[in-house]
Design a protein around this nucleic acid. Structure first.
Ligand code: SF4
Ligand code: SF4
Lengths: 161, 161
DNA sequence: CTTAATTGGCACCCGATTGGTGCTAATAGA
DNA sequence: TCTATTAGCACCAATCGGGTGCCAATTAAG
C-alpha cells in the first residue's frame, strides 16, 4: 500500500550516497555492498538515472557514477519519475493556470480550483507536489529543509532537553 | 507506482459523498451507481470504514451508511489506514520526541532529527504526515483548506482572469 | 409470513505488477 | 589478454490487488 518500488528506493539511496560522496566515482557494487542491497538492481536503478541525465557514468574497472547535476536542483519527483515513471498526465484547468503563471508557484493550493472532484486525484497531486519541491539535497542533509521553509511556519525542534 | 489502492479510492469517494449528504442514510449501491463504480467493492470499503467506527450502518431495505464522526476531525490518514492498513510501525527516537510534546505538534520537521538515513523512510513519513493533517472535510470542500493555512504561506488563486 | 434489499464476513481467482536474475555486448584499466 | 565495470534487454517467479461468489443476519414492505 502506498509505497515506492524497490527500484525507486534503491535509486534514491544511491543518489543520497552520491551526494555524500560528491566528486568521487562510485560503482554500483560499492553502493550495493555499503547498504546490503542486491547489486544488480542497484545497477538497474543507476542506469535509469543515467539515462535520465542525472548521472555521469564511466565504464571499465574503476568506473562508476557521479552526480551530473547540483543536488539542490534535482528533485525527488524527477528521480522517481525516471525510476518508475511519472503518474499519468493529470492535466486540468487548475493546473494549466499554474503553468501560465497565475498565482504563486510552488506552494499554492491548486485544490481550491479543482474541477474533477476525485479525492484520489487530489491526494495524488498533493504527494507529487511534495516530491517536486523536495530535492535530494534535502533528502541527504535534512538541515537544508530549514532553508526552504525560511518563510514558512516550521520551527526546528528544540534540543534543550 | 505510488498509488493508493482502489479500495482506498472508493472509500474516500464514499466518505466525500457522505459528507455532501450529511444526515442521509446512503446505501453502497447508491454510491456505486452515482460514481459508476463496482458496487461490491464500494461495499467492502464501506464495511472497512464501518468496522473502524467512522460510519454508522443500518441493515435491511432503506439501510445504508451515515457518518459517525465530524468530517472535520476525520483525517485522510485514519481513513486510508482503515482501508488499506497503515505503514509498518515507523517508530524512532525523533518521532518519540514528538509524542512526548517536544517541539510544536503538527507541522514540525521531524527530519531534522532523523536517525536512520533511509530516503524512502523519510518520504513515506512526509506523505503520511500530510495524510494525517488532511481531513475529509477539506477533501470534500477545498475552501476549508484555506482555514487550515491561515497562518501559512499559501494564497488562494486569483480568479480575476 | 414471505419477500426483497440491504449490510457483514470471508474465501477465492486471475491478471498485473514487481523484485530479481540471466545473458550478452561495449568499454577501459592493469 | 584478462577482468571489472556499465548498457541493454529479456525473462521468470512471487506477490499484490481488483473483483467476484457465497452465504448469513437484519429489516422494511407486501
Ligand atoms: S487534483 Fe484537481 S486541481 Fe489537481 S490536477 Fe486533478 S483536477 Fe486539477
Ligand atoms: S523518517 Fe526519520 S524521523 Fe521519520 S520516523 Fe523514520 S527515522 Fe524517524
Amino acid at each position: 500500500m502506498l509505497r515506492l518500488t524497490k527500484r525507486a528506493e534503491y535509486g534514491l539511496t544511491a543518489l543520497v550516497h552520491l551526494v555524500d560522496h560528491s566528486g568521487e566515482t562510485v560503482s554500483a557494487r560499492k553502493i550495493s555492498e555499503h547498504y546490503s542491497l542486491p547489486h544488480r538492481l542497484v545497477g538497474e536503478a543507476l542506469k535509469d538515472l543515467c539515462r535520465a541525465g542525472f548521472l555521469h557514468s564511466e565504464r571499465g574497472p574503476a568506473g562508476g557514477y557521479q552526480l551530473a547535476r547540483q543536488p539542490g536542483s534535482l528533485t525527488v519527483g524527477e528521480a522517481v519519475a525516471a525510476l518508475e515513471g511519472a503518474p499519468e498526465g493529470t492535466d486540468c484547468e487548475a493546473k494549466a493556470l499554474v503553468g501560465l503563471g497565475y498565482g504563486p508557484l510552488g506552494d499554492l493550493n491548486v485544490e481550491s480550483k479543482c474541477l474533477i472532484r476525485s479525492p484520489l486525484h487530489k491526494i495524488q497531486e498533493d504527494i507529487w507536489r511534495q516530491f517536486e519541491r523536495t530535492t535530494i539535497q534535502e533528502l541527504a542533509s535534512p538541515e537544508f529543509t530549514l532553508l526552504r521553509n525560511e518563510r514558512g511556519t516550521l520551527q526546528p525542534l528544540q534540543t534543550s532537553a
